[in-house]
Design a protein around this nucleic acid. Structure first.
Length: 288
DNA sequence: TTCCAGGCGTATC
DNA sequence: GATACGCATGGA
């Protein structure tokens, strides 16, 4: 990774990075793609630090209206720019399917998001779709002028959060906020302790089950061995890994998951395959 | 109208 | 411990 200060902008040069693939692959929900113009522009934020960025091509990026200090203290970490994803992809490519997934969307990086924000985001994500998740989080950050702290959210009630239109998830957000506020659950501890212990502690929060806990650990605490299994990853496992993940994933299961998730969801050939499988299963069931 | 969306809590066996 | 069902909301 290299960078240069140009006026009020930062020019960034880094391989293995795509804004589209990283910001629009279901790991973060605060980035909006701006339409129009030659290059696609993304606007978003880490906690209360906002950013507008674009991909110029050839591994070159522009981060607008920021400074060197903010880049080094916030965005370098957020985009995980000190990690060599080329090396990660070489390792994962020992497996044929993962090799294809890495070639398909080799610009995916695991964002180092804020633990509390990631926990909230994935509580909101349950039984929900990505556009609505984004809408709820936009109303949350709009109302509180940035992402609310858990202390601030702990004062709310399901009624007072009605403006979110988050449905049954509002009470889960409040329970999470209150358990962090009281110290009953500690994200600092969950980030560092034994991962199974962290899973158990997170799941004491109402509305946090195995999937949400795994997402909070992976996306909020960068615990790369966390492996969220949703309907898409279940399909991946049934289709390619009925006997479990290959050895090349050991310790970085979560990164493999992100490449595979994006691959099976968006690669045309793969989707048609899985639809064919589904149709076949339906036919078999009907015949029986 | 019905179904579905990066699940989970609860009741029931 | 496994399975079935309801849950708020809004787009397709």
């Amino acid at each position: 990774m290299e960078y240069a200060v140009r006026g009020g902008d930062i020019l960034l040069y880094t391989p293995d990075f795509s804004l589209d693939e990283t910001l629009d692959c279901g790991q973060a929900f605060r980035w909006e793609k701006q339409s129009g113009g030659k290059n696609t522009v993304y606007r978003g934020a880490f906690l209360n630090t906002e950013l507008t960025a674009t991909e110029l091509g050839g591994g070159e990026f522009c981060l607008y209206d920021t400074d060197e200090q903010t880049f080094l203290s916030v965005w370098k970490d957020y985009f995980d720019l000190d990690t060599d994803y080329g090396e990660i992809k070489r390792r994962l490519s020992a497996d044929k399917t993962l090799e294809k997934a890495c070639l398909y969307a080799g610009g995916i990086r695991l964002l180092r998001q804020d633990p509390w924000e990631a926990l909230c985001s994935f509580i909101i994500s349950q039984n929900n779709n990505i556009p609505r998740i984004k809408g709820i989080i936009a109303r949350l950050t709009g109302h509180f002028k940035g992402f609310p702290t858990y202390s601030r959210l702990a004062e709310e009630t399901p009624d007072s959060l009605g403006f979110l239109r988050a449905g049954f998830r509002a009470k889960y957000l409040i329970d999470a906020a209150q358990k962090l506020q009281s110290g009953e659950v500690s994200l600092e501890k969950a980030a560092a302790c034994d991962i199974d212990e962290a899973r158990r502690e997170l799941m004491t929060i109402k509305g946090v089950g195995p999937k949400v806990a795994e997402c909070a650990l992976l996306y909020g605490m960068h615990r790369l061995q966390a492996f969220p299994v949703d309907v898409w990853i279940r399909r991946v496992m049934e289709k390619w890994y009925p006997n479990g993940l290959p050895d090349c994933c050991k310790g970085i299961e979560g990164v493999a998951q992100q490449y595979l998730f994006h691959y099976i969801r968006t690669a045309d050939n793969v989707i048609e395959d899985s639809r064919a499988d589904k149709t076949e299963q339906c036919c078999l069931q009907t015949e029986v």
